[in-house]
Simulated scan of single mutants.
Amino acid sequence: MKAIIRTTRFTADPAATEKVLAARAALIAALRAKISGPSEAKLIRVDERTWVDIWRWDSPADLEAAAELAPTLPEARAAFAVANDPTAESGELVDER
């Protein structure tokens, strides 16, 4: 199985920084309590409004399970309530050094 990286870029009101961090942490915990992953999650703040969230999934099946589960989770709804204009893309991890 090959790892999959999912990157989500979004903006948020700078005054909502604590809400962004808390909602993201709750979502990750909720996913990990129910399925395998994400195995890693890293959050980058590009500027005061722009964020990039990078999640590693150990297999395409793990990401697929998360995609099916997330819409049913109140933690996902809360996380996306503070994230504006999210765009996401996924790809196979081909090199890691």
Results as ranks from 00 to 15, higher is better:
A16M: 15
A15Y: 12
L31R: 03
E18C: 11
F80Q: 07
T87P: 09
S36K: 04
E89K: 13
D85T: 11
L63C: 07
I54L: 02
A16R: 15
W57G: 00
T17P: 10
V94Q: 13
K19R: 14
F10D: 11
P86S: 05
I44F: 10
A66P: 02
E40K: 00
K19M: 12
D85S: 10
D62T: 02
A33C: 09
N84G: 13
D47T: 04
D53Q: 05
A3I: 07
R9W: 14
D13S: 15
V46E: 10
S90W: 09
R32C: 02
A26L: 09
E96G: 06
R56Y: 01
A79S: 09
A88W: 11
D13R: 14
A65R: 00
R32D: 02
S36A: 12
A70P: 05
E68T: 08
S36E: 06
F80R: 06
D53M: 03
R45M: 01
L93V: 06
A65C: 04
L27I: 07
P74T: 03
T50F: 04
N84S: 14
P74M: 02
W51N: 02
L69G: 01
A81K: 06
D53S: 07
P14C: 12
L63S: 06
A79R: 04
A79G: 06
A88L: 10
K34C: 08
L43R: 00
A78K: 04
R49Q: 13
L73C: 03
D53I: 02
A88M: 11
S36L: 05
A81L: 04
E40W: 00
A88C: 10
I5V: 15
V82N: 03
V20C: 10
D85V: 06
